[in-house]
Design a protein around this nucleic acid. Sequence first.
DNA 1: ATATAAAACCGCCAAC
DNA 2: TGGTTGGCGGTTTTAT
Length: 333
Amino acid sequence: MHPIRPHRVAVLVLNGAAAFDLGTPAQILGAARTRDERHYEVRTCTADGGSVRTSGGFAIVPDFGPEILDWAETVIIPGVHGDLMRNGHPEFTEAELLALQRIPAGVRLVSICTGAFALAIAGKLDGRPATTHWAYAAQFREQFPRVRLNPDVLFVDDGDVLTSAGVGAGVDLCLHLVRRDFGSDVANAAARRCVMPPWRDGGQAQFIVRTLPAPTQTSTGAARVWALSRLDESISLDAMAQHVRMSVRTFTRRLRDETGLSPTNWLNRQRVEHARLLLETTDLAVDEIARRAGFGTAVSLRQHLHSAVGVAPLAYRRTFRPAPPHHPDRVPG
DNA sequence: ATATAAAACCGCCAAC
DNA sequence: TGGTTGGCGGTTTTAT
């Protein structure tokens, strides 16, 4: 076990790639090491092996061409920005479309930001949950109705396909990859090496907290607001559906259309968000927080929190409420 | 940790 | 006739 066999990662840089995004995988994954051994070998390529322009006003010359797509175990596609997004979506060259088609089945796929468009065009996201930069969400939905887009999250891990929201979320996703592949210790060390803010250390899925979009203009909005106001009670699917006078079947379907989540998934996510807020901002006991967030027991809270952010409640609180006064104005997540 | 029951999920399809 | 609805029920997930 000692000589680490690095996980093979290819970064496929498209024309007009976002300058920030294309460095993220190499930087974050490259920081994943045990002693001096790297856990990832990251190679960067373009669709034809030639140079491409970036959104930053400079070109890059890759060391590799599309042949490394056959070598890779994970392929990462950074977002495309700037001129090429003029029509609201990226435009791909013939060579790029070919390269995308060439990625063998079974390779793990990762996109950052608008890189999700490339995966979607290749049909890799059909029927699957995914996310992309919020500003392109509407366009994405229209172009790829078969993809279960959820613009409210920083990233989506669907096993062998992972997508992230804009720019900085690519960092979160890469850290998540490290955590998944090699564990929290390695991921935390990588974050530290990159001087990431400590609150990212514990986070595996840092969901964006924002007010519900157009709460009553969407068909399930009223039910969602209603549920949020009584999170501490037990809320059945039937009750939510009845509240907006829909059949359970229709409600489930509409909620999925609008949020990308099933009803219990959505509800559990709200409960976790509330629990996180209480952990971050109060000293309430875990049992009490579990009750207020609507988890029947602390066991349940522990389970859901762990699956969302990868740490136990008190560990989570520790990273947000450090004993010494420090960054008192930081309001994360 | 594992068992059990209940709840939820979602493809299918006939009916608007 | 293209789109939505909502009951059915087999499978999966969740709670205890």
